[in-house]
Design a protein around this nucleic acid. Structure first.
Length: 95
DNA sequence: CAAATGACCGTTC
DNA sequence: AGAACGGCCATTT
């Protein structure tokens, strides 16, 4: 399997600055992943030691089971969420 | 080998 | 706004 890709995704996620967020699609594009789905899978496996909480879905809402924790961690970095949704227009990471 | 699963995305209705 | 599809990739049943 593509361990290259695996590592590259991890690196990109690690690169996201505090106080900003990125979408799965962004990560996929930046890391050269063929689909955002891979990013989700990789994070679920080896994302435990990464700032995975800075990665949101395309519409700014986190995954359902993580939502609570995710939003809390983001809030600690100054990223405020309107209910479930984070303003991508405001916090989205631009390399 | 076929089908199901998962931290997804864009279009369409 | 919410639901339904199709497409995407790796892994496991």
């Amino acid at each position: 399997m593509d361990e290259e890709l695996h590592e590259r995704v991890r690196e990109v996620v690690r690169t996201i600055p505090s106080g900003t967020v990125a979408t799965y699609g962004d990560i996929a594009a930046a890391a050269g992943a063929r689909t955002p789905r891979l990013v989700g899978r990789i994070l679920s496996e080896d994302g435990h030691d990464l700032p995975w909480y800075r990665v949101l879905r395309a519409d700014g809402t986190p995954a359902p089971h993580l939502a609570h924790r995710q939003l809390e961690l983001l809030r600690a970095e100054g990223v405020l969420a309107d209910g479930q949704r984070v303003s991508l227009a405001r916090y989205r990471w631009r390399g």
